[in-house]
Structures are given as structure tokens and as C-alpha cells.
Write a protein that binds this DNA or RNA. Sequence first.
DNA 1: CCCTCCTGTAACTTTTCACATTACATCTAT
DNA 2: ATAGATGTAATGTGAAAAGTTACAGGAGGG
Lengths: 143, 143
Amino acid sequence: MQISSKFTIAVHMMTCMAYFTEMEKVTSDFLAGSVGTNPVIIRNLMLSLKNAGLIEVKRGTGGATIKKSLEEITLFDIYTAVENEKEKGIFRFHENPNPACPVGSTIHKTLDGRLAQIQDAMEAQMRSVTLWDVIRDTREFNL
Amino acid sequence: MQISSKFTIAVHMMTCMAYFTEMEKVTSDFLAGSVGTNPVIIRNLMLSLKNAGLIEVKRGTGGATIKKSLEEITLFDIYTAVENEKEKGIFRFHENPNPACPVGSTIHKTLDGRLAQIQDAMEAQMRSVTLWDVIRDTREFNL
DNA sequence: CCCTCCTGTAACTTTTCACATTACATCTAT
DNA sequence: ATAGATGTAATGTGAAAAGTTACAGGAGGG
């Protein structure tokens, strides 16, 4: 299985917010149009990003803006903001190993640490990419 | 979302094959009992592992054995053997970004490479753990 | 002041996918 | 031959992701 598209959608959303700053009012409808999905999906993700302190959302008048500097926000920040099951880990474990079997009774103890290391490696790489890197590429592609 | 439990089940299976070598005939029923799942699930995974050249399965008489040295087999080998959607990547991408939007039309080009790097980091860490590491821990827990 | 546009949020439906189950053909040692 | 395995197809099931509808509530502009 895969990591849900909430993550790439959220990155897309924040890229829009940065790219269209001062040009357009970035509302949930506007974002839904760019991402190609439903405005409610966008609004729920806006909530997650807001709760993580990454963006600010104006009520009434509408529109979302980024609260931090672009160099300060990494893909990992966005990932943890929207992927609520982050604490479960990316690896799904079979749930009923046989406790009477020497392998079944120890497989969790044996693997858990190593799986965590693998996830750590992934997250470290996520931390190395900032939103600024993404925006820069987007601008370059649109010259 | 998460990586399917096929991966941890396959590691469990191969740990059994190594642990019970010469002690038990390791059949799909035996493995199903240790893993706590259905024998057909096991048989399908046995096929994947066999096609990857990691194990040998005897027809008729039954039983699976590991074909390579334990130090030679890494978690990454097992992962690629059973996770057929490996080529799709672990990140799901939203499918309908707006081609008329400067962000929507370039988001794929902008992110694909970076997402691949993240996956590469994960896979590199997977390559650093061998089946022998896992067996050693299993034996130690069962002294 | 109220009208309009937007967000916040609940409830429900649809779709997708991992996992489980049943069934049976086929192979091989004894 | 037969008993005990694997190979494999077909189908069921339950949970999670994504989409949809609906509506209450905030905020600025005429």
C-alpha cells in the first residue's frame, strides 16, 4: 500500500499559496480547482495545516497564507501535519503471530527497531527538502 | 496509508525457514500457523519469493527452503519480491491536477524526483539489514 | 443591515484495496 | 493409488480513502 495522496495534495496547496501570493485570493475553491478535487477535501487539509501552525486561514473574507518562511518549512512538516496516522508507522504488521511459536512470539521484538530505523531514514530525507526548493522549481518551469 | 503486511509476513516466513531448517518441514500450513493467517496467503507469498530467487519450494512432498546465504539476503530483497507495486512508489499522487494552472501543470515534474529520493533513502536503509541479523536476534530471544 | 462569499464541520455515499476464504487441479514420494 | 503438498482462480468481506451534499457561522461591502 501507499502513503495517501493527502500529502502530495497538501504540498500542492502550499505551493499554490506561495506562488499566487498577492496575485490571487487562495480559497478552498481556488485550490480545489488547481488540485482537481473537492473543496471539502481541501478545507479539511487546510485545518490540519493550520493546526500545525504552517498556514493562516481567514474566516469570512477567505483565503489562506503561509505563516513561516519558505526555507523553514520542510516536506516532513507537511507530512506530519496531514498524515495523522504517522504514529502508527508506515509498515503494517500482521496482527496474530502465534505466541506458541519461537519465531511468532519474538518477531515483533526483532523487527520493530529495524523498521523504525527505516522510517527514520525516510523522514530524514523528507526534512532535507524545503518548500522553497519546491517553489523555486515551480517558478523555473513557468518562466 | 501504509505498506502492506505482506512485507512483514514474508520476513516472518523466511525467518521461520531459517530457524526451523532441518527440524521441521516448513509447509504453507506450518507457516500459516506461525504467522496467524490463511495458508493461501502464504502460498502466494511463497510464489513471489520463489520468483525472486530467494527460496525453493518442493512440489508434491512440500516444504520451502532458503536458496542463498542469510548474509546475502536483505530486507530490501524481500520487500521488492513481495511488494509488486514497488514500481508505483510509496507515495500516492492526486491524479487530476489542473493542466491550465501553472502549479497544477508542473507539480509532477517538481515533486517526482524528490519523492524518489525519499524512497531511495528508505530502500538504502532496508538494504543494510540482512536476514542473518534477524535470525540472530530470534535465536538470542529463544535461548 | 443584510447580502454575499467564504470557512468549519457533520453526515453520508462511493470506491478501492488488502486480506480472507473456498474450491479444485496438479504434482510427487511412498 | 493415495496421501499430503503446492499452484491458482474466483469470490467474499471489511476497513480505509476519497468524494459529495448540506448547512451553520464569521466577516467585509454595498
